[in-house]
């Protein structure tokens, strides 16, 4: 138990010390800007296909399951559309998609930086006089924190569309009923809540994965371990912060 507590404080302290270096003044703004746009493409736009496919089909499944569950005559059928919208906006898109991205983006960041560590590329940066923490991590955090809310918005949209299309095709709901449902008691505050969650989760994914990659020690086996650790810790932190933010914002 003592070892776990010690390890917790050691890693927390080292994480915050690393973050202090990450947010120090860049040596050359132009070079960082180029890296930032590279990361927007690498971490954000490359994640779009998987998000689109998952969101579309998840919206469809939520719609069919809602229709299956609402058997009471007291529940109007447009509640199917309402349920699909609320599920996508409040929980599925910001939280579940972020958990999926913790796997894809988190392992990508941890293994990329970890490989740079074990092949001495980070040492090479340090020898040149480059602040390696800032150069490698800041563009990733900035890019992913900025792009993730847009990815989540696209996920919400595609999820609702997926529910609509598949709901109509499978005849569980009519187009009119679904449209009525998705407009029923719409609160834009829910979208704001989801986007705040998306931003916080993106920061967690980028920074925690980068931490595990940066402090990789050893060879290819350790790169794999860092990558796994990054996904596990990101997932746990996302669930914890999901609870905290929900408690605070709703």
């Amino acid at each position: 138990m003592e070892a776990i507590v010690k390890s917790f404080f050691f890693h927390t302290g080292r994480y915050f010390l690393m973050m202090r270096q990450v947010f120090s003044k860049p040596e050359k703004f132009g070079v960082y800007k180029k890296e930032f746009f590279h990361e927007v493409d690498n971490l954000g736009l490359n994640s779009l296909p998987i998000i689109a496919i998952i969101s579309f089909f998840m919206g469809a499944v939520i719609t069919i399951q809602a229709a299956y569950g609402f058997t009471s005559p007291w529940v109007p059928i447009y509640a199917v559309g309402f349920t699909a919208r609320q599920s996508m906006i409040l929980e599925f898109s910001p939280t579940m998609v972020s958990l999926i991205l913790a796997g894809k983006v988190g392992s990508n960041i941890a293994s990329e930086i970890g490989t740079m560590r074990v092949t001495e590329q980070i040492d090479a940066l340090e020898i040149m006089g480059v602040n390696s923490r800032a150069f490698l991590i800041l563009p990733k955090i900035a890019a992913f924190t900025l792009i993730n809310p847009f990815l989540i918005l696209i996920s919400m949209f595609l999820g609702v569309i997926g529910g609509w299309i598949m709901g109509v095709i499978t005849h569980v709901v009519t187009s009119y009923q679904y449209q009525t449902g998705i407009q029923y008691q719409f609160d834009p505050g829910n979208v704001t809540y989801a986007l705040i969650k998306a931003t916080v989760f993106a920061f967690i994914i980028a920074s925690v994965s980068a931490y595990h990659g940066y402090y990789t020690d050893g060879g290819s086996l350790e790169v794999g371990r860092s990558s796994t650790k990054a996904v596990v810790y990101c997932s746990i932190l996302i669930l914890v912060f999901n609870f905290l933010l929900t408690q605070l914002l709703l």
Binding site: E120, D123, A124, I127, M128
Partner: peptide, 14 residues
Amino acid sequence: RTEIGMLFQGGALF
């Protein structure tokens, strides 16, 4: 360190 050049064992190219 801007006045230092280093050649690593594996090259350490990016």
